[in-house]
């Protein structure tokens, strides 16, 4: 992008004078790869609204972003987890008081074909299906038969192994050190998972809440047997009762000022929140988007 701009300057010396560029504020934004595509979408949309501010977005992981924010090299850190005790300590030593913004939620729904009669799962049952060593291979193991699924086999649909969704589902459902059972169909996108579940009566998949379609249904999830079974929705993700949802965060060093404050306010406005919804995550509150 920078290359393009400077090339443009060479060609059209008239168009971009030095004064024009000096006024342009650059907000450095770094961190979580889960948030990366949303952060890029925000940056892109914001450059249309406020051409004087450029937001430079890079990934690298939540930890990278947070330490860069503590060291003052970036203005805003993206994180898909809260800051740890050590990080807060490091920030205090640097005289930085991090301010946390919840900018959205990443709620993973379990998707089943519309024919599948199962209405609820416990986390342990999901682990039995997806986890290495889990015994659930057939739908009859859950006492059901799925119309249209003659083979009775549970067709596991998962994600490619470097997706944030893959990592989070593993952490939240299988546990930190557990592995996925091999042999799942590993799709390359959130939408592909739901598409395949739509066409496959035997299937089970997990993906972002926003990808729900009329041809699939999302069972409620209970943390343990007999516990409250929570339906995945934007509300349950916001109030924290849904067990496989995590807040998506942004951190600034101290209360944001000036252009950074305007940017954060815009992210939390309806316009910014509609962009996060578009990208498959839950917004922080109900928004109506066109």
């Amino acid at each position: 992008m920078n290359k393009k701009i400077s090339l443009g300057c060479l060609v059209l010396l008239m168009a971009c004078g030095g004064g024009d560029r000096a006024q342009r504020t650059v907000i450095q934004n770094k961190g979580s790869d889960t948030l990366l595509n949303v952060a890029q979408a925000w940056a892109e949309a914001y450059s249309q609204i406020n051409p004087n501010v450029a937001v430079a977005v890079t990934g690298g992981g939540s930890g990278t972003g947070i330490s860069a924010m503590i060291n003052g090299t970036v203005d805003v850190a993206n994180a898909s987890r809260t800051m740890g005790e050590e990080e807060l300590e490091a920030a205090r030593r640097n005289g930085v008081e991090p301010v946390e913004f919840v900018v959205g939620f990443d709620a993973l729904a379990v998707f089943l074909h519309e024919n599948n009669p199962i209405e609820s799962f416990t986390v342990a049952q999901l682990k039995d299906i997806y986890g290495e060593g889990g015994s659930a291979e057939t739908w009859s193991a859950f006492g059901t038969s799925v119309p249209g699924c003659g083979s009775d086999e549970i067709v596991r649909i998962s994600r490619q192994n470097n997706s944030g969704t893959y990592a989070y589902f593993k952490e939240a459902v299988l546990g930190e050190d557990a592995e996925y059972k091999l042999g799942s169909r590993d799709m390359h996108g959130s939408k592909d998972v739901v598409d395949l579940v739509e066409n496959t009566p035997c299937a089970i998949g997990y993906s972002g809440l926003a990808y729900e379609t009329p041809e699939v249904h999302m069972p409620c999830i209970a943390v343990e047997e007999g516990g409250a079974c929570v339906v995945p929705s934007v509300e349950t993700a916001i109030e924290g009762s849904y067990p496989i949802a995590r807040p998506l965060l942004m951190y600034t060093a101290g209360q944001p000022q000036g252009a950074v404050k305007e940017y954060m306010d815009w992210i939390l406005s309806d316009e910014g929140q509609c962009i996060i919804l578009e990208r498959g995550y839950a917004p922080v509150r109900e928004v109506s988007c066109t």
Binding site: S151, E153, R185, N199, T200, A203
Partner: peptide, 15 residues
């Protein structure tokens, strides 16, 4: 092909 294979051979997944 995928729906065709599912229909013809009665298998769960056509991929």
């Amino acid at each position: 092909m995928s729906p065709l294979i599912i229909d013809l051979f009665d298998v769960p997944v056509g991929l």
